[in-house]
Design a protein around this nucleic acid. Sequence first.
DNA 1: TCTATGTATGTAATATCATAACACGTCAAG
DNA 2: CTTGACGTGTTATGATATTACATACATAGA
Lengths: 158, 158
Amino acid sequence: MDPQPFHDHDHHLCSDAVMSQAEAMLTASGARLTPVRRRVLEILLEQHRAMGAYDVLQRLAAEGFGNQPPVAYRALDFLVEQGLAHRIQRLNAFTACMHPGEAHAPAFLICQGCNTVAEAPAAPVRAALESAAADLGFTVERASVEALGLCPACREAS
Amino acid sequence: MDPQPFHDHDHHLCSDAVMSQAEAMLTASGARLTPVRRRVLEILLEQHRAMGAYDVLQRLAAEGFGNQPPVAYRALDFLVEQGLAHRIQRLNAFTACMHPGEAHAPAFLICQGCNTVAEAPAAPVRAALESAAADLGFTVERASVEALGLCPACREAS
DNA sequence: TCTATGTATGTAATATCATAACACGTCAAG
DNA sequence: CTTGACGTGTTATGATATTACATACATAGA
C-alpha cells in the first residue's frame, strides 16, 4: 500500500484523486455530497493527519457554516459511514480515507514525531486477529488496529 | 490464553490470583499499592468488563474516598503504568489485566452482547502489524488492537 | 527524634469530546 | 401544491479528561 504519507509527494495527486473517487462513489450510491460534507472532506484531505471534530468545526465556522458541534460531527459521521473517512480511536480524531472504495479494514500508523497518520494494509493482521479470536470462540465483527511509533523521517531525525 | 472470561468460572480464582500477583509485583518494584489503588484494582477485578473512570469514581466516593475525577484517573493511570490494568480506547474505559507480569501486548475482544472484555494472545497479530509497518519504514512502539464481536455464549443466544 | 523531601491524595475549576432535541429550509414524489 | 424525507442550524446538556494548587503522609537523613 501507499507509503506516500511518510514521504514528500505532490499532495494534490492524493487529494484530487480521492475527491474524484468520492464524488463517483456517492453519485453511484445516491448519497449527497453537500457543501458542508464536501468541505469537511477537503479539510481532512489537506494533510495526512487526524483532526479533532472541534478543529474541523472551527474551520467550518470561519467559512460561514454553522458553528455548533453537531455540524461537524454529522458531516464526519457521514463520511465515516460512506467509507471516506476513518475515526482514530486513540486520538479522538478523524482522518480522510486515502483508499476509498477499495474494501479495506486498515491498520493505522500514527507517527509520534510529526503526527502523520498512514493506513497500512491490514489483511494479515486481521487474519491473525480472527484466528486468535476463533481460538476462544469469539467472532470478530469490527476491529480497530492503531499503532503509535515513528515514521522513517522522524526515526532518522531522532 | 485464558478463555475463562467467556465462560462460567469461579471468579475468585481469577481475582484472587491477580491480586496476589499484583502485590508481589509491586512489592518487588517498590511501587505502593495504596488503599485507593488497591480498591480500584479490586473494583476492576469484580467483572470481566471495562469500567469508565466515572463509574469507578462513584464507587470510590461511596466508600469515603475523594469524589473528584483525578482520584479515579490517578489510580487508573497508576495501574495501567504498572501493567495491572489496560485502557480500552474504543470504550473510553479500563479493565483489569488478567495476566499481570507476563509480558504481553494483548488484543482485546469486546463482546457486544454482554460487554465482556477478554485478552487474546496477540503475538502473531503484533508480528503481522510490525511487518506491515516495516514495509512502510514505520517503527511500532505501542499498538492497540481491539475487536468488537460476539462471545460464544452471546453468539449462540442470538 | 525532628525535619526535609518526595510521593500520594483531596478539591476546585476548567478543558475537551460528544449527543439529544427541536426548529427551519429545501427539494423531489405524489 | 402539499407532503415527507433529508439536511442544516442552534440550544442545551452530557460524558470524558486534565490543570493547578493545597494538604497529608511516609520515610530517609541530620
